[in-house]
Design a protein around this nucleic acid. Structure first.
Lengths: 333, 333
DNA sequence: CTGAAAGCGCTAACAC
DNA sequence: GTGTTAGCGCTTTCAG
């Protein structure tokens, strides 16, 4: 970034107006006579003037930039969320500073502080859970924050989610209806609020309500091989149906099942709780709880634009509909 | 972004020094007596002072922000590249403004101009091809640019790639060695420089060198269903081996092949030219040209940091090694 | 080692 | 409608 060649001052001089007028033209302020505006526009074009957004940001205290906090860029779940956010951001002319925080030395609150120092106008936070430190960092600022696809203990921050309990219950009903009675819930982290407060209670309630026996929760299944290595244990325990929260784990479990000669869905049924591209290209195709990831992101960003304009929100917590997509990994009787 | 509560001026007054000294402390300048430094640090901590990066940017002409231009966030190919970039960016304390440009009304050069207006210190451009307008926009500025996994006609811009010709030739040799002689090259866009100048010439040369007949190039295969719908045509023409540039298309083709009762790899072999997670979870697993996506991104970002520090580059065009990973979609005799 | 002062490029009252 | 004038919060000579 070298010294800027042409500034608002050059345009003013050349167009024989004050820089205030140039500023008005640039910002679409109506208080400029048409002839003046045209003249200024002509000079802007001729000189290839481009406003310096940093200077604008310092003077106006708005950077038209929002921060995005995401665990991992290469996780399709968050990539699809981000796409929804990005599309709405473009619509409202915001740029996005993206920060991934998983497996980093830098602590989450330091990342957030860095974003705030850059004077972002707002932040969207995505994760399986809102960490303590992140929540604290957000509370210290008055920069608006929206949680997308992220469960939080307190309802302090606006959020967009689906009804995880309802979705899981519906999936469990599908399994039960197919005659599978020894069910499993396979999660990445038992303590993540989304699991602790939603999926696990829903599972336990379902098991109790239907008086099922031998059902179990499996923790710490985070990637493909975790899923792949899990099947023997499930088989030994006679489990014949599972809801798996991560789709790569689902695929690992699926492949493992097939490799060991079990039939899906006859012997064993799988429902995956996060439907990304990966779940739909494997064979047999996986039955999924389809979260509207794109929409979750888009709605979250729309909420944020309102907050950044001090417009206020009708609903602070939005719940979007999901869909249970029945494919070949369940019998679907 | 409201009025900042505590500024460098507050710290200066409280510590009984000038703001210049506070600035020195904040920026780690050594020309400060230890006692003074300690006193300033104490006040900074006590007042929770955080420098305003926008003001720093305006005054210093460095924003410690780089722009990333990517076709689509949800394409794992670019997501993995981005991850490499991001990790190095964090290391050098840069933030990343990410802009996706595929299927947008806004033209690419407008996106680039927007990034430049934000005074990014550098730009990394990723795409299948560098568009004319993008190249023009980059030429107008002296902000450094690096191309990652992107082929360009001219060698004006520094770049990081693999040797696509060599990789494809090795893959074709694998197919031929397995006894497959009617080969196909399946691409997304014939006119993209990576195909036009690398993959297609390599394919044609291979066919000529080995005096093969009935080999053909298939264009416009961009997604899963394109790949899925392609197989009948290949079958009719007796094609028995294919290199597919996009991995989702490869998977589509694979599933279609299996659905129609052909055996992979006995009757038909597939090699995919971009190995993302998707290629490795399907069954049979796909043989792939494994591009070091993470490294491509990391090296590109490292180059950019050098350029941003006016350090100069030893090599302007870096070629990284690839690997041909043999899996079950080829016989591998 | 420290301070004074001049910007960086723009916005936003305020006056006319 | 348009110009004048303060800043926005920080870096960076230049003196001393």
């Amino acid at each position: 970034m070298h010294k800027q060649d042409v500034t608002i001052y050059d345009v003013a001089r050349e167009a024989k107006v004050s820089m205030a007028t140039v500023s008005r033209v640039v910002n679409g302020n109506n208080n400029v006579r048409k002839e003046t505006r045209d003249r200024v526009m002509e000079v802007i074009k001729r000189l290839h003037y481009q406003p310096n957004a940093v200077a604008q940001g310092l003077a106006s205290k708005r950077t038209t930039t929002v921060g995005l906090i995401v665990p991992d860029l290469t996780n399709l779940y968050f990539a699809e969320l981000s796409k929804g956010i990005d599309d709405i951001a473009v619509l409202y002319k915001y740029n996005i500073i993206i920060s991934s925080v998983e497996n980093r030395l830098m602590k989450e609150d330091a990342v957030i502080q860095g974003l705030l120092n850059k004077q972002v106008d707002g932040v969207i936070y995505m994760s399986n859970k809102l960490s303590e430190e992140a929540a604290e960092a957000f509370k210290r600022t008055d920069t608006p924050v929206v949680l997308a696809g992220t469960v939080s203990d307190n309802l302090e921050f606006p959020s967009v989610n689906i009804d995880y309990k309802k979705a899981d219950t519906e999936a469990l009903n599908l399994l039960l209806n197919d005659g599978k009675k020894k069910l499993a819930l396979v999660v990445g982290d038992k303590e993540a609020p989304i699991n602790r407060d939603h999926r696990i209670p829903a599972f336990e309630k379902f098991v109790a309500d239907n008086e099922l026996e031998g059902c179990e929760i499996f923790d710490n299944i985070k990637d493909y091989s975790d899923g792949y290595n899990l099947y023997p244990e499930l088989a030994k325990k006679g489990i014949n149906g599972a809801i798996v929260t991560k789709d790569v784990s689902s695929v690992g479990l699926l492949n493992s099942t097939l490799d060991r000669g079990a039939k899906v869905p006859e012997d064993f049924e799988i429902v995956t709780a996060s439907a990304t591209q990966i779940a739909s290209v494997v064979r047999p195709a996986l039955t999924t709880i389809k979260q509207p990831l794109y929409d979750l992101g888009a709605v979250a960003m729309r909420m944020l634009t309102k907050l950044m304009n001090d417009e206020g929100l009708e609903d602070k917590h939005i719940v979007l509909p999901y869909e249970l997509i029945k494919k070949q990994s369940t019998l679907n009787k």
